[in-house]
Simulated scan of single mutants.
Amino acid sequence: MSATTGPVGERLRSARVLEGVPLAANTKINQGAAVAFDSSGYLVPITASTTIKPIGFAPKTYDNTGGAAGAVLGGIDLGRSRLMRGYLNDAAPNAVSRANCGSTVYWLDDQTLTTLATGHVATNNRVLDVTTASSDLGAYVWMEI
């Protein structure tokens, strides 16, 4: 991508409950359970694991028992409203993906995020969502601000 050459329109979203988050394969999450992103960016109940990234609580029960990753979409109660801003995504192989949800990524330029740490400064907030061009929201990396 390239740095901005003029003003950029606002790409803001606010949510207390983040909807449309894909569940991990063969997973059931009960209402009120603490939830996390697994290492692939799918929603799971919190367990004794060092590879998950805690994010909030389940507002409802979601059942993907026997299903593939992403077959069921769930939600995350973030505990309070979070303001998110959409940023452009770097191209492959350094594009931000669902696997980066809950993590810090890096600035490629003043409007683009990347997973490449070398030579780039870390963002001060974490990624909460990644949407594609086919989404109603457009193709953005949604970072908490």
Rank of each mutant, 00 (worst) to 15 (best):
M1N: 07
M1Y: 13
M1E: 11
A3Q: 14
T5Q: 12
T5C: 02
G6E: 12
G9C: 12
R11K: 14
L12T: 14
R16E: 12
R16A: 13
V17N: 09
V17C: 08
G20L: 04
V21H: 02
P22T: 00
L23A: 10
A25L: 03
A25C: 09
A25M: 12
N26T: 09
N26W: 00
T27K: 02
K28D: 06
K28R: 13
Q31S: 00
A33P: 05
A34K: 11
A36V: 09
A36K: 00
F37I: 05
S39N: 12
S40T: 14
S40D: 14
L43T: 09
V44R: 01
T47P: 04
A48M: 12
S49H: 04
T50H: 01
T50D: 09
T51M: 00
P54C: 12
P54G: 05
I55W: 00
G56M: 14
A58G: 11
P59G: 04
K60S: 11
N64C: 11
N64V: 07
T65R: 08
T65N: 08
G66H: 04
G66C: 07
G66M: 06
A69D: 13
V72F: 01
G74P: 07
L78F: 06
G79C: 08
R82C: 15
L83M: 08
M84S: 05
G86N: 05
Y87W: 15
Y87H: 11
L88K: 05
N89R: 09
N89C: 15
D90T: 06
V96T: 06
V96L: 06
S97D: 14
A99M: 03
N100E: 13
C101N: 15
G102A: 11
S103H: 07
V105H: 02
Y106F: 13
L108V: 11
D109Q: 06
D110T: 14
Q111C: 13
Q111F: 00
T112L: 01
T114A: 00
T115C: 04
